[in-house]
Design a binder for these strands. Structure first.
Lengths: 155, 155
DNA sequence: GCGAGAAGATTGATGTGTCAACTAAGTCGA
DNA sequence: TCGACTTAGTTGACACATCAATCTTCTCGC
């Protein structure tokens, strides 16, 4: 790789803030969930996705697709969540390879009690601080950035 | 927690894109570094910070402050990096509790060979896709969001 | 049907981050 | 100068993500 165009002072500044943000925001989200619901953000994402799919049972692979997660990540987390009694897995009726995921009643209780606090967190940290126009612009920027990464086969 | 204001369709959409982005971008960055430099983004951050501080040796705690990382995170990563021969630790001359961090020559080689590719990644995925005005707006938005999280003691 | 290959899912090794508990070294007041 | 407090850093237990390897079940051409 030959000499690239190095970053200017302002670019460096934006990059550092961006990088810190990428780290800090998920951690803030995890803290909110840990503190208020004794749950990780991954667990919340799974519970929310499965509860929204109900009453249909969600297949493990569909869950992976919905969340845009790797299969093995889903598998590991489901194992831990099953051990905690939050979800249940059973062989899919149609396809013997598939696993149908359902919430246990403890899972339902958990997601119902966590949802209000989490929605409030999202509102107060992401939506309220930004005007409607800014929200729009943010969405467009994220989309542009993602596309650039996709083009480089890195997303 | 009483009933919160639930998210509208558009808000839900933005939130999902945002959440996916928060996951996807760091992973894209890690992939670039793993692929081109056999290195994690954490290792790159440490090497870059220590190399910029040179020729002064950087203390472990200052590194934690600079990167805004937890102390133990720094400590664990430094141990692994020392085992790989990228950095060295020695008791700080002034304060017997401190640890001075320096790059080994392998560490210098590594960061020098990784830097061009990484800067190019940052330019192509973050800076180039956005106009100067957008970059500005992005910085402001991130700052607003961060402040909102700080106010809730979650950052 | 049957054998090759695709698809769904799990597993184990490894690297990484977090929290809480701990050790060691500096600081400071009486 | 001694004892309490603070600060720097490490450690261990645990949660989590990734990758590669594996196992099972489906599918499809013959």
């Amino acid at each position: 790789m030959s000499e690239p165009r190095w970053l200017t002072e302002e670019e460096q500044q934006l990059w550092l803030e961006f990088r810190e943000f990428l780290w800090g925001y998920p951690r803030a989200m995890d803290r909110q969930l840990t503190r208020d619901a004794t749950m990780s953000s991954g667990e919340y994402a799974v519970l929310a996705a499965v509860s929204q799919a109900a009453p249909e049972a969600l297949r493990s692979g569909d869950l992976a697709t919905t969340l845009e997660w790797e299969r093995s990540r889903v598998s590991h987390l489901l194992r831990r969540m099953e051990a905690k009694g939050l979800i249940e897995r059973c062989a899919s009726s149609g396809d013997g390879r598939g696993q149908d995921i359902t919430l246990t009643s403890a899972g339902w209780d958990t997601v119902r009690s966590a949802a209000p606090g989490h929605v409030t967190f999202v509102r107060e940290t992401l939506l309220d601080p930004l005007s409607a126009a800014e929200q729009d612009q943010l969405g467009q920027m994220l989309s542009k950035i993602r596309c650039a990464a996709v083009e480089r086969n890195l997303w």
